[in-house]
Simulated assay, not measured.
Amino acid sequence: MRLIITVLFLLLVITGCDSKSEKELLENLVSKDPDFYMLYAVPEIDKEFIDVQEVQDYYNLDFNKLLSNDSLDTLYFGTYLWLMPVDNYKTYKYIETLEFDDYPAFVIFDSEQLVFSSSNIEEVEHFLSTREETNGIKLRKEQEIDYYSQ
Results as ranks from 00 to 15, higher is better:
E123N: 10
Y94I: 03
F109E: 01
I50T: 14
N60C: 08
E123M: 05
L139Y: 14
H126S: 15
L81E: 10
N88L: 08
N28F: 14
Q150R: 13
E96R: 07
P34C: 07
L66A: 10
E54H: 08
D35F: 03
E133K: 14
Y37N: 05
P43N: 01
D46R: 10
R140S: 03
Y147T: 00
S21I: 00
D110S: 04
E22M: 06
Y58Q: 07
Y89R: 13
Y147H: 05
L128D: 01
E132H: 14
S149F: 07
Y58F: 10
D18W: 15
L61M: 15
I45E: 09
V42W: 00
L39D: 01
E44T: 14
Y80C: 04
S71G: 11
V52W: 03
V124Q: 00
H126L: 12
Q56F: 06
Y89E: 15
I137N: 01
K47L: 11
L98E: 06
L61Y: 11
E24M: 06
L98G: 06
E22H: 07
V86I: 14
Q143H: 10
A105G: 02
S111N: 06
Y103T: 10
K93I: 13
S129M: 06
A105L: 06
E96I: 05
L81K: 11
K47D: 08
N120Q: 05
K65P: 09
L66R: 13
S149N: 12
S111G: 08
Q56P: 10
Y76S: 08
N60E: 12
T130I: 03
K65M: 14
V107L: 04
I45A: 08
D57R: 10
D110C: 03
E112I: 12
E144I: 13
P104D: 05
N135F: 15
S31P: 02
L75M: 02
Y94V: 08
I108C: 04
F36Q: 01
D73P: 06
T130C: 12
L139S: 13
Q113F: 15
Y103M: 02
W82R: 01
A105Q: 01
G136V: 04
S117M: 13
Y148K: 06
L98H: 08
F36Y: 07
F36M: 01
S117K: 09
L81S: 14
K32N: 13
E27M: 14
N60A: 09
Y89V: 15
M38R: 14
F36R: 03
N28S: 12
Y103V: 09
L75Q: 01
Y58N: 05
S119Q: 07
V52Y: 05
D35C: 06
T130R: 15
Q113I: 05
K141G: 00
E144L: 09
E54Q: 13
I145K: 06
F109D: 00
Q113P: 07
L98N: 07
L75N: 04
F63P: 00
I121E: 00
N88Q: 11
L72M: 01
H126I: 10
E27H: 12
V107P: 03
Y58G: 06
L67V: 04
L29C: 04
F77R: 10
T97R: 13
Q53E: 14
D101N: 11
Y148I: 07
E133C: 11
N28R: 10
